[in-house]
Amino acid sequence: MTKIVGDPNYIAVVGPVNSGVAKAQIPISNAAGLLQCSPSNTNTALTVGDAAKALRTKPNNYIRVVTNDAIQGPAAAAYIITVLKKTSVYIIDDTETFGKGIADSFEAEFKKRGGTVVKHDAAPKTTQDYVSIMTAAKALNPQSIYFGGVTASGGARIALAAAQVGLDVPFVGPDGINDGSGDTKDSFLNLANKVAKNAYSTLAGPGTFEGKDKFDADYKKEYGIDATGYAGQGYACTQVVLDALARAAKTNPKDSAALREAVRVAGTDTTYEYTLDVGKVKFDANGDTSQLIVSIYSFDPAAAKGKGDWKYETQVDAAQK
C-alpha cells in the first residue's frame, strides 16, 4: 500500500478482501487521500466507532459495497429463529477480530429475539482437539450451532467434530465459510464434505441481483472459474471507481494529485446514488453502504457436479425491518 500511494498513477484501489488487511491499509491510504473500495470487508470497526476514527487522520477515503458484521451476524440470528425455527444455539468463535466480533453481534440479536444461547465458547485457530469441545457442546443440547470465524480458523474442523460426536443440528457460519464449492481447494465445503449437509452460511450482500446469471456466465468465460462469494461485489467496486473517476474528470483536475483527491471526493460523496450490478447504492459518511442486505445460503449436495455447493436461499434486509 505504501508503494501504491507513492505512485501518482494510482487514483483508486479496489480491495482489500480481508478486514485485517484493511485495518493496516486504511491509515496509509487515508493519509494519501486515495479512494479505496472494498468488495468484502465486513468488520464493523473499519467504519464505525472510535476504532474506525483512529484509523483515519484525514477525510474519509474508504467505502465498501458489502454491509458490515453488525448486520451480517444478526441476520443469521434472525434466519435461525424465524426460518429454521430453532430457539437455542451454541456459539463458538475463533477468538479473532472478525470471528469474535460477528459472534458477539449474532449473540446479542439471538437473545433479543428471545432465543437461548446455551454457551458462547471460543477456540483459537491453533486448537488441536475440537472433538472434546464438541462433546461439551452436545451435552448442552443446542438446536443449532453458530460459528464466528473463517474456514482457515477452524470452521470445517468444528463441523467435522460436531458430526463425530453426533451433534446433528444446523451449523451456521458467516461469509468466512462461504468460500466456494466442494470442488474449491481449502473451502469449507471441500473439507466438511458430507457433514455439511446441515450447514448454512451468509454473505453480507445480495446473493442475487438482476442479471446475476449473465454475470456468472461471463465471469466463468473470462476467468475459467466459478464466480464465488463476493465476485459480484468486486465488480460493483470497479463500477464505483469508474463512476467516481468519470465525475472527477468533469472537475478538470490540474495534476495527478488533484485527480486523486477529486476521485476520493466523488467516490465518498454521501449524496450520490450509484447504480451498480448489485442494485442502487449510497454510501454514508462512514463509508458504509445503504444496502443492508445479507444473503443466506444452504448446502446443495448435488451442485458442482456432486461435490456440493452453496445454494442461495433468501436474503434478510435489515433496512426493511
Binding site: 465458547d121 482437539d129 472434546s132
Partner: peptide, 18 residues
C-alpha cells in the same frame, strides 16, 4: 497435557487451554 486440554474444553475454557 491431553487431560489439561480436555478439562479446559469440557468446561468451556478452550481458549485458555494453551
Amino acid at each position: 497435557i491431553g487431560f489439561i486440554e480436555n478439562g479446559a474444553a469440557s468446561l468451556g475454557y478452550s481458549r485458555w487451554s494453551e
